Amino acid sequence: MIAHSLCEFAGGEEERKELEAYREIHVPTLSLLKWTTKLRSEGLCPLTLEESILMLGALGFNRKMHIFVVGFNLYGGGSQLVALTNLYPKLVTKENLLSSAELESFANYSSQLAALDFIGCTASDAFAMTNSGSQLSSLVSRY
């Protein structure tokens, strides 16, 4: 999501290099373009975790609510979610809803893993997207 948006977060030089390498391989035309602060100021970047936390609070989500999180394993997994789990300790992911054995049959099928996320999102009482350009966000919103 981040790599395809030309946006960067607070991951520093290591994140920037990782994103550049990914873009060169998977989306070479994007590697010719450069990130600018204008993208973020115009709201064209996915929300950072900090922005997501502010949004949830502004929408009235409280600490007792269960929050289903998609894509938590990107960019450091659980360690990147420390601020979010401090405020919302009842985070739920497909990885902690299903056993390792249940997830194993999906391991090599990213589309099927995404389908599990879709089911989790559509079964929720509310859905808050952090990236209006993602396919999952578009599918869930239209659902």
Score class of each variant (00 low, 15 high):
114 A>V: 14
92 V>K: 05
105 S>D: 04
44 L>R: 14
77 G>S: 02
53 I>G: 04
70 V>K: 02
75 Y>Q: 11
118 F>W: 05
82 V>E: 12
121 C>Q: 05
30 L>N: 06
47 L>E: 08
80 Q>G: 15
117 D>Y: 01
89 P>M: 05
89 P>N: 09
66 H>M: 06
112 Q>E: 11
94 K>H: 12
104 E>A: 12
115 A>Q: 13
55 M>A: 15
26 H>N: 15
90 K>F: 15
71 G>K: 01
40 R>C: 06
72 F>D: 15
86 N>Q: 14
67 I>K: 05
80 Q>P: 02
93 T>W: 05
38 K>Y: 10
50 E>R: 08
87 L>R: 13
70 V>C: 14
94 K>V: 13
109 Y>R: 12
58 A>I: 01
121 C>F: 05
77 G>R: 04
69 V>T: 08
26 H>E: 15
75 Y>W: 11
116 L>A: 07
112 Q>P: 00
95 E>G: 05
86 N>A: 14
90 K>M: 11
111 S>K: 11
61 F>D: 13
96 N>R: 03
79 S>P: 00
60 G>M: 05
83 A>P: 05
113 L>P: 00
51 E>D: 12
103 L>I: 07
94 K>S: 08
62 N>S: 13
99 S>D: 03
102 E>S: 12
64 K>S: 13
46 P>S: 14
46 P>W: 03
46 P>M: 02
48 T>R: 02
71 G>V: 09
111 S>L: 12
91 L>M: 13
66 H>F: 10
117 D>C: 06
38 K>F: 09
84 L>W: 03
87 L>S: 07
93 T>K: 03
118 F>I: 04
35 W>Q: 13
76 G>K: 01
67 I>A: 08
29 T>N: 12
55 M>S: 13
114 A>N: 11
101 A>H: 08
43 G>A: 07
93 T>I: 05
120 G>I: 04
63 R>A: 14
119 I>M: 07
101 A>G: 07
58 A>N: 10
107 A>M: 09
83 A>L: 10
92 V>I: 11
52 S>L: 10
88 Y>P: 00
81 L>H: 04
78 G>I: 10
81 L>V: 07
81 L>G: 06
52 S>R: 11
103 L>P: 02
39 L>P: 02
105 S>C: 10
53 I>H: 01
67 I>P: 00
82 V>S: 11
26 H>G: 02
37 T>H: 04
119 I>D: 10
77 G>H: 06
77 G>I: 02
62 N>L: 10
110 S>P: 04
102 E>P: 00
118 F>C: 04
96 N>H: 01
45 C>I: 01
38 K>E: 15
106 F>V: 11
81 L>M: 14
112 Q>W: 08
31 S>I: 04
85 T>G: 06
72 F>K: 12
59 L>F: 03
56 L>E: 00
46 P>E: 07
46 P>I: 10
34 K>H: 09
113 L>I: 09
91 L>G: 09
115 A>P: 00
89 P>D: 07
31 S>P: 00
118 F>K: 01
27 V>T: 13
32 L>G: 13
27 V>E: 14
28 P>D: 08
86 N>E: 14
57 G>T: 13
95 E>S: 09
40 R>E: 15
83 A>H: 05
63 R>D: 11
53 I>Y: 02
105 S>K: 11
